[in-house]
Design a protein around this nucleic acid. Structure first.
Lengths: 222, 222
DNA sequence: GGGGTACCTGCCCGATCGGACAGGTACCGC
DNA sequence: GCGGTACCTGTCCGATCGGGCAGGTACCCC
């Protein structure tokens, strides 16, 4: 790989990088790829969010390669970590490097300040170049996550955003309960349940409760 | 890592290994881990099923580390490859090494002759030991996939196993179509659709179409 | 031939749904 | 106070669903 004209900001002219990923295999692979680049240096690793907080506080790297899916803890732990890093250490560039492309995750990561989003099946040169891009404080999104963002912008106007009540009704719908029974469970009238069901269907663009449940399930709402 | 008593069957007393994975990072990580073991040797790599067929025919390794999720092609491409390898080269040990634990995938892989199933977030020593286990023609399943198999055996009697027709009906249900419209789409009568819908609900243990769609969505049927 | 399965169809009926009306309370920000 | 939102309730009605009944064809395996 040829050197780039840009100059990183780390101590000896090298980009310092921390890896946050719960897969030893992946960390090993990244190390071995990045160690070949003489302007990059992997200075630390973390396997959990807690570990990452400590490591980043101490090492203050230029770049964090962050896998959103950390084995331990909740699904959103990686996203929360992402927020924290960009809030507490705005000088650190967060490059999300994860396995699957999930529309919601891409957008969420961007909201939370990630400077790039790359899927793990990119080839090594694309990854290395994404890191250099983030180091220049530019955005590095692979073509697929970029198209997710573009689609989100095009279709952004209409956001589902269910209310708490609707969420509760939706969850009971998914278990196959009738409006009357849902009402009994939530201590509201059947009429009110029908009211909420209609709003849920409208917000999710569904024609029937079955489709609403399907869409909600796809979107991870239930 | 200490040597094992068992003797592998490769040419110079080494286990020959082929990696099949579409992620360059993962291949790199595996290489760098396995190259440290003096009784193992990575002799080839493949990123697609087609490539894997050619590589395996030529190299006949002792072990294949196979990622079921190959970027290109259908979701089942990895599984089909698994069948082919065990059918055409029964002497090759297939160790599935994949990212997520999916009950259906574990069971399917076992059916198709995989000798082991390991999730990528295992630590390196567990992986190395799984490879040695498969080389001895024994089974190497991590605790989680083993428990999936155990659960499947316990709950095996009742399997959903939708028929093709039911699958087709289910997919249209999820899009919010009524029985009548589903019938029009599939060129069958509304009565027949109702017949299938009832069978789907029975098999999935659902009381309504909405619950059926939810369960199916959770199980990855749609 | 018998048994199993997937598949297809009809009729009937009560329960439920989806939607269109028309109301109400409570809280919050300007 | 006024607008906005979330929430709650009712009545009416046609369409749809869920389930019980009874039948059919075709295929494969033993």
């Amino acid at each position: 790989m040829n050197r780039q004209a840009t100059r990183p900001r780390a101590e000896q002219g090298q980009l310092s990088i921390v890896l946050v990923d719960d897969h030893a295999i992946v960390r090993q692979g990244l190390r071995s790829i990045l160690d070949r680049e003489d302007d990059m240096r992997v200075v630390g690793e973390a396997t959990t969010a807690t570990e990452a907080r400590a490591v980043l506080d101490r090492l203050r790297p230029d770049i964090v390669l962050l896998d959103l899916k950390l084995g331990t803890g909740s699904d959103t732990e990686g996203l929360e970590l992402c927020s924290e890093i960009t809030a507490n250490h705005p000088e650190i560039g967060v490059l999300v490097l994860t396995t699957f492309l999930d529309d919601a995750y891409v957008l969420e990561a961007v909201h939370r300040g990630a400077k790039g989003y790359v899927i793990k099946d990119v080839d090594t040169s694309a990854l290395v170049s994404a890191i250099r891009t983030v180091a220049r404080d530019e955005s590095a999104f692979d073509s697929r996550s970029a198209s997710v963002m573009a689609r989100s912008i095009r279709t952004a106007p209409e956001e589902p955003a269910l209310t708490e009540r609707e969420q509760g009704v939706l969850e009971l719908l998914a278990t196959g309960l009738s409006n009357r029974i849902v009402g009994e469970r939530l201590f509201i009238s059947e009429t009110t349940v029908k009211f909420h069901v209609r709003n849920i269907m409208r917000k999710l663009g569904a024609a029937t409760r079955a489709e609403a449940v399907y869409e909600a399930s796809k979107m991870g709402l239930i």
